[in-house]
């Protein structure tokens, strides 16, 4: 190889100008990788009049922030964002480039990777360096963990969900180099953004919930699923799910927990009628107390929780709900 190692890059996504938590988490992890590689950590930050929000990126560990400001960059626009990042990457040859696994990150990352003719790994649950200082990208698959590397092409690119890495301490002001990008007006775009609409999600949000009740394929049908919803309601819990209930249309995709869904860390997690497949379980490794209800005594989920109950959830949940009601009435 020879020469010095290229910088580690993070794409800092913003909403309304503020840097998203996932981007800060990635900046924190990227700091460690950059230190281990003996190289610098650089963050790309695009938006409209967002300069005042760059300080937090330095505080999170960035050595350098490339700031691109333009009214067109207020919201993510695939072609503009891709062109800016690709040009910058061609100039600076980053070694590693990390993006959050958000709707934006999941569209932008493959566009940039394909343009740069490099590899990209989705849904990583850990990032380390191997003996050859290659980025080891770890994902759950086939009931185990697989490591993916990108041996020759650079940058080594990955997307990571919110909650995989800890948010770095950003309370201490730190210095770094701010590089202002020249962003011109662009014609000839093939996509025009007309409007962005934010929708309120119903029910307790998963990310911040103290209690999560997650249901799986064992609910069997919509009626069985409703019992899981009822349990969540009775406990004031956020509703979560594995993938099959989403595929069946019982619940929205934004309720899915796991590798390709959300990462949560509640005080209490109750998994009902789910097998304990790793792709789901990696989403709740941060939970404090974990409980599973499953009709199959040998279900793998029973090796991954604190309390287990073997029972048919469709019989057990109504009894459990009654008991919770009775307990609450007793205390009141």
């Amino acid at each position: 190889m020879g020469g010095s190692t290229g910088p580690v890059w993070v794409f800092a996504e913003q909403s309304d100008g503020s840097v998203l938590p996932v981007s800060l988490e990635l900046t924190g992890q990227a700091r460690k990788l950059a230190d281990e590689l003996g190289t610098s950590l650089e963050v790309i930050f695009l938006g409209d009049a967002v300069r005042e929000n760059t300080q937090i990126l330095f505080n999170a560990g960035a050595d350098k922030v490339y700031l691109g400001e333009h009214p067109d960059l207020k919201f993510y626009q695939s072609e503009r964002y891709m062109q800016i990042i690709v040009k910058l990457a061609q100039e600076h040859q980053p070694e590693i480039f990390l993006l959050g696994s958000t709707a934006t990150g999941k569209e932008l990352a493959p566009l940039v990777a394909a343009k740069l003719k490099t590899g990209l790994t989705a849904h990583c649950i850990d990032l380390t360096l191997d003996q050859e200082k290659r980025l080891e990208q770890i994902i759950p698959a086939y009931g185990g963990l697989i490591s993916i590397v990108c041996p020759e092409k650079r940058p080594q690119m990955a997307t990571i969900a919110k909650g995989v890495f800890l948010k770095p301490d950003t309370s201490e002001p730190k210095q770094g180099e701010l590089v202002l990008l020249e962003i011109g007006n662009e014609q000839d775009q093939r996509i025009e953004l007309l409007n962005v609409v934010y929708e309120e999600t119903e029910g307790v949000p998963l990310e911040s919930a103290a209690v999560v009740v997650a249901g799986g394929a064992g609910a069997k049908d919509l009626e069985g699923w409703q019992q899981i919803v009822d349990l969540a309601d009775e406990m004031g819990a956020a509703l979560g799910s594995t993938r099959p209930p989403v595929d069946e249309g019982w619940v929205e995709l934004d309720r899915m927990i796991g590798q390709s869904g959300k990462m949560v860390a509640p005080e209490l997690y109750i998994g009902v009628g789910l097998s304990g497949e790793l792709q789901h379980m990696v989403g709740i490794t941060g939970a404090k107390l974990m409980v599973a209800v499953n009709s199959e005594p040998k279900a793998p989920v029973f090796e991954q929780v604190d309390y287990g109950i073997v029972d048919d959830c469709r019989e057990f949940l109504p009894v459990l709900i009654e008991n919770i009601k009775a307990y609450k009435a007793d205390k009141a």
Binding site: G119, L120, P140, G144, I146, S147, I148, V149, C150, L278
Partner: peptide
Amino acid sequence: SPTIISDLRVS
């Protein structure tokens, strides 16, 4: 393929 699987392990 730019990426390859370098290791498989049981968790």
